[in-house]
Design a protein around this nucleic acid. Structure first.
Lengths: 152, 152
DNA sequence: AATTATTGTTTGCACATACAAATAAGGATT
DNA sequence: AATCCTTATTTGTATGTGCAAACAATAATT
């Protein structure tokens, strides 16, 4: 377990990058993803796989395009994620005309509760680190900003 | 130019993911990175390359470890970024004992002003989308959160 | 002085993501 | 009906990032 670390102990908190949204947003995403992958990783899933799986379990027959819109990921990325989940036999695809419908397998359905549980654990970890209230407001602001910027 | 798009027009703003920090943070990072890469892309650089280059120009002889701490990226990632910049002949490495020191080339130094200019352009675009004041506060909050969560 | 531990850097591998182009199916227009 | 246009999905390729392990150099301990 020789996980690479970043030693921030001696970093000036007010370095120039703290004033840069591009930098900060990516830093936050990486830190948070690390935590998320740690929790979802116990189920053998990356966080985005877990999200997609849950979406498929809750909406059997959902199409890649719909998933793309819901998860804010491009169609090609969705295809790749589905491929991975198919390999793990958690979902399966059925072609219908020009659409592809994605269904959960039994194995996939059975994993749902664990996914939700992992989800709650990540929430707890964020809350412990920065406070439950702060998690809420920050999430809201971030989501709104992402929407505004995405529309540009 | 058949860039993949994500159609968010018909997405419910209050879907369950808007309440999830992991999801929102990554969505924001992707949107923002797309804008940043567009601006820095004119210089033939990804945004992280631009950041690293600026760091090297401003602190000639900086080591990968220092860069790792400043840029919140793991040492291996730093190595990869340096390799890329070396290929473009914008920086060069000199081994000194167990340390590696990174210096800008003349070509690299000449690019500095353009990097700063691109930086300002990204700032303008964020401000136009979500307001200058909001960019400031959001950036601050995000950076703080990243620090708190990173320390866990 | 010799061995062990620590620190700094790089490398092999893997993964999430995206762009651009390809393919395929439906719809629209003539 | 035949042609063009649009929409849905997949595929080839590339990039940024990280983990784990390898390597190299210095420091610490015996």
């Amino acid at each position: 377990m020789t996980k690479e670390t970043i030693d921030t102990a001696d970093v000036n908190v007010d370095n120039r990058y703290s004033a840069c949204l591009l930098f900060s947003a990516n830093a936050l995403a990486r830190v948070i993803t690390a935590i998320g992958d740690e929790e979802f990783g116990r189920l053998g899933l990356a966080y985005s796989h877990a999200y997609l799986l849950r979406e498929v379990v809750d909406q059997p027959g959902v199409t890649p395009t719909q998933l793309s819109n819901t998860l804010f990921l491009t169609p090609s990325t969705i295809t790749r994620l589905i491929e991975k989940l198919e390999q793990k036999q958690l979902v399966e695809r059925r072609a219908e005309g020009k659409n592809t419908k994605v269904f959960p397998t039994i194995k996939g359905e059975q994993l749902r509760d664990e996914v939700v549980a992992a989800w709650l654990r990540t929430w707890d970890r964020y809350s412990n680190a920065i406070g439950e209230e702060q998690v809420k407001t920050l999430t809201q602001q971030i989501f709104k900003a992402a929407q505004s910027l995405g529309a540009v």
